[in-house]
């Protein structure tokens, strides 16, 4: 908390820090349904953050957009952003080359609650690029694996080609993560492979595959709005997890990231300052006024 304050004090609220992009990796090819997704590896430059926080990233000459941080804070030498070319600024970001400089403002937002999860089982439910913010948390938990019970990851995407981070899954399994995957539409080959339990269907169909103890499980959800909605419904109705134990991270296009511009208001909450991570208990209250998903 103190480091964040110092960071903004030092730089001014709206002034980005310049960070060099050290490497760019292709994650998902342009031909996939979700379009091109790339990983941008940035120098860390002493910036401290928590999993689940986001940053306002400037592509010079194009503009500024909020991007979640998909690497764990314990990885001390870099910050990784997983970005889909979805619009004007992210499209321009995909054009930059390694060695170029981008602007970084943050970290912003509250981040995932980690300390209350110690000793608990953790269930991740991710859809598409929603795995990116959860990956930072997943790695953070794996760095201190002994503090937590079971770790389960249910991951769904549109097609096998759209699944992120497939190369890291063996490593996660090795460290005791139970991985279940699903795709909306299979390609005939993917279904036949057996490295991870897999299904064709939306991610919530994976709920039938797992057995958990709802009393000691904390769930983290991220994905497209409709997926968040049904995943949270399934977690409480089918898996009987209490709303206070379910957390989802919301997406809005913040222009400032620091509770000034008003673009991320949902009901009486500002996603950039009160969120982006909310418990289902909070989301239910917001949903009475305005559906947050």
């Amino acid at each position: 908390m103190n480091e964040e304050r110092a960071f903004f004090d030092h730089n001014g609220l709206y002034t980005p820090t310049l960070l060099r992009v050290t490497a760019i990796e292709d994650e998902i090819p342009a031909e996939a349904v979700t379009g091109p997704i790339k990983n941008f590896v940035l120098e860390r430059n002493g910036i401290d953050f928590r999993p689940g926080q986001f940053a306002q990233v400037t592509v010079f000459g194009a503009g500024e957009v909020p991007i979640s941080l998909s690497s764990p804070p314990s990885l001390s030498d870099r910050i990784i952003l997983t970005v889909r070319a979805a619009g004007f600024v992210t499209g321009a970001l995909h054009q930059i080359r390694p060695g170029d400089v981008i602007g970084f403002r943050g970290p912003c937002g509250n981040g995932f609650p980690i300390e209350p999860c110690i000793g608990q089982d953790i269930l991740f439910v991710a859809g598409g690029i929603g795995l990116a913010p959860l990956r930072g948390l997943l790695w953070e938990l794996l760095f201190r694996r002994q503090d937590f019970g079971r770790i389960l990851l249910l991951y769904g995407a549109r097609t096998p080609r759209d699944l992120l981070y497939q190369y890291q899954i063996p490593e996660w399994q090795e460290k005791g993560v139970e991985v279940f995957q699903s795709v909306d539409v299979g390609d005939g080959v993917w279904e036949k492979r057996t490295e991870t339990p897999r299904k064709v269907g939306v991610v919530t169909t994976l709920f039938q595959e797992i057995k958990i103890d709802p009393q000691r499980t904390v769930a983290f959800v991220c994905g497209p709005p409709v997926m968040i909605r049904f995943a949270l419904l399934g977690l409480t109705r089918d898996l009987h997890i209490a709303p206070e134990r379910c957390f989802a991270t919301l997406e809005r296009h913040m222009k400032c990231g620091v509770g000034k511009c008003g673009h991320c208001i949902v009901a009486d909450k500002y996603v950039c300052m009160d969120g982006p991570v909310f418990s289902l208990a909070e989301l239910e209250k917001m949903a009475v006024i305005e559906e947050p998903w």
Partner: peptide
């Protein structure tokens, strides 16, 4: 920065198809 208004159509539109309100 310039003034914006929550009553305008594109106020909360996001790239990638998320478009509340």
């Amino acid at each position: 920065r310039y003034r914006d208004c929550c009553m305008l159509q594109g106020f909360v539109r996001q790239a990638g198809g998320i478009y509340p309100r």
